[in-house]
Nucleic acid binder design. Structure first.
Lengths: 222, 222
DNA sequence: GGTGGCTTCAGGGTCAACCCCGATCGCCAC
DNA sequence: GTGGCGATCGGGGTTGACCCTGAAGCCACC
């Protein structure tokens, strides 16, 4: 893979700009137009979905606040049309709720308009390549939301019923490994795995490994 | 991009190392010891929780796979003790499930052991400052999990391979129902369930119902 | 009327999962 | 040193998961 020159004519990223202010679009275009191909522009939700579906760009630079809806609405509309592209949110806002909403909708990055043009070009290139791009503080918002999106359960008293070895076996079993695989990974015999597995199921009052998988998944042990 | 001097005595970060291999701990310590204070070490879950709660470091460098549990178990234990610190996962694994599990538990970053020592020091400084630190590909895993989508999935062409009846059977199997249960629910014989199950696995190129469960769960079919 | 796909079922088999019983060994506490 | 517990194995068993082959009835389509 030759990744040397992203400005290379053959590798130039095709970009659509979505922002309700023509001046902003013009500004962004002049800043990044040398490095990428701006193949479309839109200033509202409907127009954005149309132009994105028509052009199928590599990256959509998406303002979060739009007339007639917002950034997530655009992403949802494009997803519904089964068009594959990558969204990079570009906003004046750095509020946690805006960041989270647009990332939850499926954007792969979020940068504010205070970004330097060289950094923006870099960000476009990176999201097009599958990376996630955030300014540092914003990434923290997403992780907080992600970690907090689930009940912060404490450590199970049930888990303490299992010995260390039983816990190791339990984890592997819950991940779907066959007894033989578990035995190989732990360098013990299948019979020992069977013994531990039996103890695990009995102690946790489960009847088979399917229930064990769900039990472990519920507790985020796998 | 590091301009200032994080080696400043007054601002040196206090770090705890958690890894079951003493050699790895020694190596990491020698690499970063000039820039940070390693105030504690541990090689298993219990020991990690103890030493973290005792020292309350700025950052915990946490191996994901540990005897007697795993990274998330350590984070959960420290959280349960209401000790405030920041976790940076440091692992040989770059598997999506490991990354997601430890981030979901509350880690603020994830780097692999292939990282250069200068980058590791930078990562420690950044997570201590509240930033999130990832190698690019790993950040994508987290966003995928957060958005609840998978990279580059359209609405499955694979699902269309299955007939209506096969889809019904598939859903029940993926939920963990035994053949006998599926047969009862659909009012058909076990043999018919077996036939459908076999077709489903063959068409989806899966080898057993555990993979089927994960396949279906990934696509939110169950 | 033939062809083919979907659904239904059967007989036969292999292997994994899970159970029961038993056993040895090492460690640690009383 | 005796007893408990954890970890390690074995024999032998039942049940479930999964495969292959074969076949029947139904229905749509040509």
């Amino acid at each position: 893979m030759q990744s040397s020159a992203p400005q290379d004519q053959r590798n130039r990223k095709r970009v659509v700009l979505v922002d309700d202010h023509a001046l902003v679009r013009a500004g962004v275009k002049s800043e990044i137009g040398d490095a990428v191909d701006v193949v479309g522009e839109a200033d509202d939700v409907e127009g954005a979905i149309d132009v994105i579906c028509a052009t199928v760009p590599d990256v959509v630079l998406l303002d979060v606040h739009l007339p007639g809806g917002n950034g997530p609405a655009v992403i949802a509309g494009v997803r519904a049309a089964e068009v594959q592209t990558t969204f990079l949110a570009l906003s004046v806002s750095d509020a946690a709720e805006d960041v989270i909403a647009v990332i939850r909708a499926g954007a792969r990055g979020y940068v504010t308009k205070a970004i330097a043009s060289s950094e923006l070009i870099d960000a476009i290139t990176r999201v097009a390549a599958g990376d996630a791009v955030f300014s540092p503080r914003l990434a923290g918002f997403v992780l907080d939301a992600f970690a907090g999106s689930l009940p912060t359960d404490q450590v199970d008293p049930e888990l303490d019923l299992l010995t260390n070895r039983e816990q190791e076996v339990m984890r592997l079993l819950a991940r779907g490994y066959a007894y033989k695989e578990v035995a190989k990974r732990l360098s013990i015999s299948i019979k020992t795995v069977e013994t531990h597995a039996s103890s695990v199921l009995r102690k946790l009052q489960l009847s088979n490994r399917h229930q064990l998988s769900r039990w472990a998944a519920d507790r985020r042990l796998i």
